[in-house]
Every structure is written in C-alpha cells, then in structure tokens.
Amino acid sequence: MEKLSKAAIFAIVALVIVLIVIFKSSVVIEAGQAGVLFKPFGEGVEKDATYGEGFHIIAPWNDMIIFPVRQLSKSDKMRVLSVNGLEVTVDATVWYQPEYDRLPYLYQEKGINYEDNILEPAISAAARSVVGRYTPEQLYSSKRDVIQSEILEEARKELESQYVQVNRVLVKDVTLPPKIKEAIERKLKQEQEALEYEFRLTKASKEAERQKIDAEGKAVANQILSASLTDKILTEKGIEATLKLAESPNSKVIVVGGGENGGLPIILGNQ
C-alpha cells in the first residue's frame, strides 16, 4: 500500500510537470498577430523566422513575443511652427503596421514599444518639416491635402530603415492662434468680396459691349435699307398694298393721286 502511494504521488508529480511543460511549450498566435521567438539559452532573438497565426510548440525555456501585425492607427495633436514662426496645432492620424518579415529585427533593435520609440518621433519630425514650409494662410485654406501627402512622404523616409511601414496620414485639423485665424478669415472675406465686385464689373462691361454691337448692327441695317428704298420701289409697294386693301369688302372708293409720279392711291369707304 505504501509503495502504491509513492507510485501515485510520483505519477501525479510527473503529470503536473508534463502539464506545465505542455503549457509552457504551447503558444497560440491569434488572427492579425505574429510572433518572434526568443531563446535565452541560445542565440537570443531568432532572426530567420517570423511565426504566423495558429498553434506552435516551443521549448519551455524559450519565449514567444507576440506583435499585432494588422494595420494600426495612432492619433496625435502636434504643436509645430509655420514658416514665419507662428505655432500651429496639427491634429493627425497615421495608419501603420510593422514589416512582417523583419519583425525579429524590429523587436531586437526597437523593442516591444516601438511606437513610442520610433513611430511617434518620426511622425512628429515629418510634421515639423512639412508645416515649416507654409504660411498660416496656406495651412488654413488650401494646403491640407498637400500637407498630408508630404507628411506621409517624409514619415516614410524617416521609417524606411526602421522596419515599420506607414500606409496613410490624415490631417484632420490645423488649429491656428485665434487672432491669426480671425485675421485670415477677414482677409479671405475681403478677397471674396473683391472678386464678386470684379465679376459684376466684368458682366456689366460685357453687357454694355453687347448693346453697343447690337445698336451698331441695327444702324447699319437701317442705312442699307434706306439706300435701297427708291421712289419707284416705294410706289410699287404702295400699289401692291392698295390692291390688297381694295379686295376688302369694306373698301368703297379708290382715289388715285396726282403729282409727277402719279402719287399713291387713297381708299375711302365705310368700315
């Protein structure tokens, strides 16, 4: 009985050890994640392999460091200076992800908190570099799309050898000092009013020119018509009109006038 008890205790201890080994040796990497294997009794970080999603068995003394590798986003409000030294606040969001195949190098050189160590400083440096090229008026009005593209380009340059891929940068807002913003809005309003006034003047000038051309055309037409209306033509037209009127049932008497050319007929009669 005593031997059975010792055997049972030994079996239980062995089972516990096996369970611990299995527990320590099994790793499940979830969807959108990847792992880097660290061997404390070997070469340290295993640089030749990035472990993908699924179930993995490793030696119980090794560690699997798991990173999210799907696209991530980070938002920040950065205070930067414009080209003339005025402080502006840029509210931006960056979409990024670690480079899958180089994940072991990212862990070894930058650590698990690589966002704080390299990503944020790179985005901040890119924003300072880009915003420093523009005036507050440009930042406030029409340069936001250009700023986004340039910050993205600068950030990629900063991170191209840092094992992090930047996919997109969105500038949600550019906040200027209140007095500068008010001055810019007044200036933009005045420019808009000036453009509207210039448009009205141009429209009025074009209308006056159109009326002038129309009047000149009518004058020329009248001159041509007057030159073509001889006495003979007028008499002929008058006779044609008289004949048409004579055909009317209300016409009673036709009097033919005298004169050198005979004059035009006159019709007398009741309605």
Rank of each mutant, 00 (worst) to 15 (best):
Glu185Ile: 14
Ala7Ile: 12
Pro60Asp: 09
Val88Gln: 02
Leu106Gln: 09
Tyr197Ser: 09
Gly132Leu: 13
Leu119Phe: 05
Leu201Gln: 15
Leu176Ser: 14
Ser25Val: 07
Glu182Asn: 08
Thr89Tyr: 05
Ile123Glu: 00
Asn117Phe: 04
Arg79Gln: 07
Ala227Cys: 08
Gly259Thr: 10
Lys172Thr: 10
Ile184Glu: 05
Lys179Asn: 11
Gly263Tyr: 11
Tyr134Cys: 08
Ile58Val: 15
Val80Asp: 01
Ala31Trp: 04
Glu154Pro: 01
Gly35Met: 07
Leu188Thr: 10
Asn261Val: 02
Pro60Thr: 09
Tyr140Cys: 01
Glu198Arg: 15
Val27Tyr: 01
Glu216Tyr: 01
Asn113Cys: 07
His56Leu: 12
Val171Phe: 00
Leu229His: 06
Pro40Ser: 08
Asn261Arg: 12
Gly238Glu: 04
Leu72His: 00
Gln162Thr: 04
Asn117Glu: 08
Gly52Tyr: 05
Asp231Met: 01
Ala126Leu: 06
Ile29His: 04
Phe199Ser: 14
Arg168His: 00
Val131Arg: 01
Ala127Tyr: 03
Asp145Phe: 05
Val18Pro: 03
Ser226Glu: 02
Tyr51Gly: 03
Ala122Pro: 01
Phe55Asn: 08
Ile22Thr: 08
Ala92Ser: 03
Gln33Pro: 04
Ala204Ile: 15
Asp101Thr: 10
Asp231Ala: 05
Leu245Ile: 04
Lys157Trp: 03
Leu19Asp: 02
Tyr107Gln: 10
Ser161Arg: 15
Arg133Val: 06
Val146Leu: 12
Lys157Val: 01
Lys212Cys: 02
Glu153Arg: 06
Val171Tyr: 00
Trp61Lys: 06
Thr89Glu: 09
Phe41Trp: 13
Gln211Asp: 08
Glu182Lys: 12
Pro265Ala: 10
Ser73Tyr: 02
Ser73Lys: 05
Ile12Trp: 14
Leu139Gln: 03
Val90Asp: 00
Lys181Asp: 08
Gln190Tyr: 05
Pro40Ile: 11
Ile29Asn: 02
Asp145Asn: 13
Tyr105His: 12
Ile254Asn: 09
Arg133His: 12
Val18Tyr: 14
Glu236Ser: 15
Gly111Leu: 12
Glu120Ile: 11
Ser149Trp: 01
Lys244Cys: 05
Ile22Ala: 12
Ala183Met: 09
Asp63Phe: 11
Val94Met: 00
Asp231Thr: 06
Asn270Cys: 03
Asp76Thr: 10
Tyr100Gly: 02
Tyr197Lys: 15
Gly111Tyr: 13
Glu150Asp: 13
Ala11Asn: 09
Glu185Gln: 15
Tyr134Asn: 06
Lys179Phe: 10
Gly35Lys: 04
His56Glu: 09
Asn117Ala: 12
Val45Gly: 07
Ile123Cys: 00
Glu209Asn: 14
Ser248Pro: 04
Val90Thr: 07
Glu193Thr: 12
Ser129Arg: 07
Lys232Cys: 00
Phe23Gly: 11
Ser26Ala: 10
Pro40Gln: 08
